[in-house]
């Protein structure tokens, strides 16, 4: 119904229950209901990647998922990945390389970067560029981001840079 619908899910390891309108997308749910404003909204039509979060371990566009579809799901946002320390090395690499300027794309970019580091730990620059090609960054020109992800990949696989 168009009336609020109850949902229960896990967000960054915490159980969350809420009443949401069916039309509310996951990005707005995270931002407006839970105050998790690290998930950014850049286009609301699934192109820019700023709202990228993890749902059940997979990166998705939070603007292209309804909050009601996240029933029983495990959602992880940039706040969760930061607090757990999962991407602290990647964040350090971004900092060292100045791989962010305005920072608006960065949470989504880190999500996408961690995804390739998980699934393709040996990725080369071209594969990194391709994997990040759904995440729009207007500031950096991408070179520094690719450097930071590549450096993290090398460090994690124990190779010298």
């Amino acid at each position: 119904m168009t009336n609020p619908t109850p949902i229960s899910l896990t967000v960054n390891g915490e159980s969350v229950s809420a009443q949401v309108l069916p039309r509310l997308n996951l990005a707005d749910f995270l931002r407006e209901h839970l105050g998790l404003t690290g998930t950014h909204v850049g286009c609301e039509h699934g192109v820019c990647g700023a709202c990228t979060v993890r749902v059940n371990g997979d990166i998705v566009r939070a603007c292209l998922l309804l909050a009601v579809q996240a029933e029983d799901a495990s959602v992880e946002t940039i706040e969760g990945l930061s607090d757990s320390g999962e991407i602290s090395d990647l964040q350090a690499a971004f900092q060292n390389r100045n791989a962010l300027q305005c920072g608006y794309c960065t949470p989504g970019m880190l999500m996408a970067a961690q995804d390739i580091l998980t699934h393709e730990p040996q990725a080369d620059r071209e594969q990194i560029r391709e994997h990040l090609s759904g995440n729009y960054c207007r500031c950096t020109g991408y070179h520094a981001i690719v450097d930071a992800v590549e450096a993290t990949a090398r460090a994690r696989s124990g190779q010298a840079r």
């Binding site: 069916p22 039309r23 997308n25 609301e44 039509h45 699934g46 566009r61 603007c63 292209l64 998922l65 309804l66 009601v68 579809q69």
Partner: peptide
């Protein structure tokens, strides 16, 4: 509503305004 990756942009842009979504997920 299957994966929603084409439907959701249309909904968010108000290009489509169905009365009901049947989620088959």
């Amino acid at each position: 509503l299957s994966g929603g990756q084409s439907l959701m942009p249309a909904l968010n842009l108000r290009l489509s305004a169905p009365a009901l979504l049947v989620d088959i997920g």
